[in-house]
Design a binder for these strands. Structure first.
Ligand SMILES: [Zn+2]
Ligand SMILES: [Zn+2]
Ligand SMILES: [Zn+2]
Ligand SMILES: [Zn+2]
Lengths: 141, 141
DNA sequence: TCCTTATCGACAATCATTATCATTTAATAA
DNA sequence: TTATTAAATGATAATGATTGTCGATAAGGA
């Protein structure tokens, strides 16, 4: 289902601003972007786009299941288009590069939680940090 | 090693403000606190403690390995005394209660990373979210 | 005890995010 | 197509967390 239908089906309006923001997310699948970054890129698609609208659109997309919030270190939120494929991220502490990590052991963890606690786990976030191949190589020199 | 020795061994001064902040962390082992919360509690030990000093002390303790930063959802940082025991947290989305999760599958994940990528993982953060036993029970009613 | 300077606390500044509100515009019905 | 109406927008102000500044204070060594 495309953006227009998805918005209409939930009673929201389809606007060029939202199209621009969503386009940026789609174009950067797998690369978490901050609202500031999204705004800068989306302005190339809709030049008068306001930063406030960017923030609002990103949150709306998350509520609609079209995007997901990514929690990394740092003082900004990050967003990504929701592809339906669960994954995590590895962030290079040196250059900031982000690599997708498809492996996730949450199910095993959930089982352990069920054994040891009555806590019901519904969400999780995880990120790995370290050094990307590029930065590792350049360090050797 | 106590706080005084730890500070002196790295060339830092031992002050009642730092003692107060550290005391609060120790007293709340396993419970991540925001700088604001730490400040409020630490003021009972040293009433004229400034919020700025609280922030600075917490960061210093992290650098010294005496405390760790905890990344939860939400717009604040959280800190915890470093007990040397690696663990994670489960946060109740309803009441905010935090339960310690000792299980961690990072080693298994690291292995998978080694197989599929040249990324070197040195740190990770993970939190689980859901509902605590208390909130689950009260929902049934 | 006296000095030196790390540390402190009050306050200003900054950064990300949210609230406000007058204006614009998407969607619908005439 | 046009008129209508409320959702959406964008400029701006406000907020909340964190950091920077700087004169005053006090820890720790001489
Ligand atoms: Zn790198
Ligand atoms: Zn996962
Ligand atoms: Zn709860
Ligand atoms: Zn772990």
């Amino acid at each position: 289902m495309n953006l227009e239908k998805r918005l209409h089906s939930r009673g929201y309006r389809y606007t060029p601003q939202r199209e621009a923001v969503f386009g940026v997310l789609k174009e950067n699948e797998g690369k978490p972007l901050s609202p500031e970054e999204v705004h800068e890129l989306a302005c190339k698609r809709f030049s008068s786009l306001g930063l406030t609208t960017t923030y609002r659109s990103l949150e709306l997309f998350c509520d609609l299941g079209l995007a997901t919030r990514v929690h990394l270190h740092g003082d900004s939120h990050y967003y990504e288009v929701n592809t339906g494929k669960h994954h995590h991220h590895m962030v290079c502490l040196s250059c900031g590069a982000i690599e997708i990590l498809e492996a996730c052991l949450i199910e095993e963890l959930k089982e352990r939680v069920r054994d040891g606690s009555d806590f019901l786990v519904t969400e999780h976030c995880m990120s790995l940090f370290g050094y990307c191949p590029g930065c590792l190589t350049s360090r050797k020199g």
